[in-house]
Amino acid sequence: MDRVFHTSFYMPKDIVILGQAYAGSGGGQPLLWQHLFWFLAHPEVYVLVLPPMGIVAEIIANNTRKPLHGYKTLVYSMMGIGIMSFVVWAHHMFISGMSAALGNFFLVTTMIISVPSVAILTCLIFSLKGGSIRYNLPMAYALAFLPLFGIGGLTGLPLGLTVTDIYLHDTYYVIGHFHFVVVTGSIIALFAGVYHWFPKWYGRKMNDTLGWIHFWGTVTTMCGIFGPMLFMGLAGASRRLYDPTAQFHNLPVQGWNVVSTYSAYALALFQLPFVYNFFHSMWRGEKTVENPWQATTLEWACPSPPPHGNFEKTPTVHRGPYEYSVPGRKNDFWMQTEPS
């Protein structure tokens, strides 16, 4: 509204932009924008990351043929993250002029929210121990998620600590951090989900060769783009500069921009096998059985693709969702709908 209707919600009095006085009346506060924006946007990023974490948990349980480690911890941690995500937003604004006291408050809540995140990642990693790991495409993506999201999360710690954030705020380090969590985190998990559930959607499997090309290409180029940003930021390279070479300390790290750019083009190219694979397999993929991954959960108990209403008759659930490798049974999985 400030731009279109010349209101002054965020424009302070007598502000002059590019030599011209602002057309509105003034009297607003830029800080208001920051608080309103981040009050939304911080919970938003947890909306972006929690469902992919769930997908990874599902795929890991399936492809290690054993129940998840610390299932209850996982669930309570996810709930804890959801609740805490509402009281951390001002860690995006540590240098906006807040008092140190308020900064301390958000520092503490941000450190608290990192605990359940680490708990979730730890449970997922421990779930691998003793498992009979099948290295198919969904599992590859789920495995890649673990260290890469770990990097994203750990690089968030200096940003959550007020003192180090003073240096790192608005540098390339921030860009590296949030892209690691969302791109190498959420998006990789979403790819895992697509490869995992595609047989359910279309009754056909996606092509493995193209999938592996997509996987290796995507993971390496993603790191190629955002890895350099982490140390560019540590060198002090600021964000949103029209001419970064104007700052002397940026010059030594400018070369890494080239690496990022080439990686970005390569990442785009590596998505082509995926797109082709997706649409080609919809019509001409190798036909598959109802439960190709030998999974236990309900969605695998209906035909692929599911008909209208999903199930031929209402399923009866006999046990929990992660009954893999139950001792004494012939099969290494026991579907929820299978009677005892």
């Binding site: 009095k13 506060q29 800080l31 608080h35 807040m98 308020l102």
Partner: peptide, 24 residues
């Protein structure tokens, strides 16, 4: 509760911090 926490920075602004964004 969610609505009330929005008032936190406001209270900080008024009582604790220097209000450097207030117009002269």
């Amino acid at each position: 509760a969610c609505g009330a926490i929005m008032l936190l920075p406001l209270i900080d602004c008024l009582l604790v911090a220097q209000r450097i964004t207030a117009p002269v």
